[in-house]
């Protein structure tokens, strides 16, 4: 559905997006991650045809954004980052206006507006002027605008920003639901959100893709993934640490040794599973009368991986 090829955007000497390529199929929800200023919004602005790329191209459903912009744009629903709205209109008036621009009129327009209002839970405020709405309602009004024509492609820039926990959940469910039949790209700074609704995630840093895969894949790339967490008492912390380091399957031990206890992480040797190491630790505990209050495998955490991939180059 969405094909992005070698997309580059320069603002003066600054390269905001650097030779970025990706593609999203129907039925895929792509989470777009990256630190502030990584180029997420800039990429989305180019995909939606707001910013012309410095080089590279975008096609949406086979239509080139530069050559047939109106065809390509008609397939896209877009929620910009700041959720801009015409403040002097009512919710209903605004949605009616966008429905008309999307080519609907008469009863079709009315049905589209009603459906969007219902989907985004705006019934209470439908006749209210937008400048009197709270931030969350404004955000939802702009989201309603993005789905008003039931587009094949959705580009959502931080769709849950400013929503309360209940509404965040509603929007995540909505994204997951719509993801079955649409191609969706959404950006977020909330990593759980990625695990909750994406089938794929991309991390970009300084305009380049640094990781691409399913959320599970990405989690496993965290350096701690597969290590074993241990909290034990029974000997002095230093002694426990030494014992652990001496295990046959242990490669490295890291943690804090207190007078009476040890708490830390043990990495298995290459080609050794965390399970084998954990079993060995369990045996050790039996032999040395240690009390294990914690012993489990690290599943890898998305935010660890995120930090490791994107914090190295603070230039």
């Amino acid at each position: 559905m969405i094909e992005v090829k070698n997309l580059t955007k320069q603002f003066g000497p600054k390269v905001a997006v650097d030779n970025l390529s990706l593609s999203v199929r129907k039925g895929e929800v792509l989470g777009f991650l990256g630190p502030n200023g990584a180029g997420k919004s800039t990429t989305m602005r180019m995909i939606t045809g707001f910013l012309p790329p410095t080089s590279g191209g975008v096609t949406v459903g086979g239509d080139d954004m530069l050559e047939a912009p109106n065809l390509a744009k008609a397939r896209i629903g877009y929620l910009p980052e700041s959720a801009p709205l015409y403040l002097d209109m009512t919710v209903e008036g605004f949605l009616g206006f966008t429905a008309e621009l999307r080519g609907k009129s008469g009863s079709e327009k009315k049905a589209a507006v009603d459906r969007a209002i219902e989907t985004c839970f705006l019934q209470k405020v439908r006749r209210q002027a937008i400048d009197t709405l709270s931030k969350g309602y404004r955000h939802r009004t702009c989201l309603a605008q993005a789905i008003i024509h039931d587009p094949e492609v959705l580009i959502l820039d931080e769709p849950t920003d400013g929503l309360d926990p209940n509404q965040k959940d509603v929007v995540r469910n909505l994204i997951r639901e719509m993801g079955k039949t649409k191609a969706i790209i959404f950006s977020t700074h909330i990593l759980e959100e990625v695990e909750a609704c994406c089938s794929r995630a991309i991390i970009i840093d300084q305009g380049r893709i640094v990781a691409d895969g399913t959320p599970q894949d990405l989690r496993r790339r965290a350096s701690r993934a597969g290590a074993v967490h241990v909290v034990a008492t029974g000997l002095s912390g230093g002694a426990i640490e030494k014992e652990l380091g001496g295990l046959r399957h242990a490669a490295r031990v890291e943690g804090s040794a207190l007078a009476e206890s040890f708490s830390g992480i043990v990495w298995p040797k290459p080609n050794t599973g965390a399970g084998v190491l954990a079993a060995e630790i369990y045996q050790l505990a039996g032999a040395k009368n240690l009390v294990l209050s914690e012993l489990h495998e690290d599943q890898g955490r998305l935010d660890d991986m995120f930090r490791e991939l994107t914090s190295g180059n603070k230039s």
């Binding site: 602005r45 045809g49 707001f50 109106n70 744009k73 877009y78 910009p80 966008t98 621009l101 080519g103």
Partner: peptide, 9 residues
């Protein structure tokens, strides 16, 4: 950003 990403020229 809204207006110019609508399918109008």
């Amino acid at each position: 950003e809204l207006l110019l990403t609508m399918p109008i020229s």
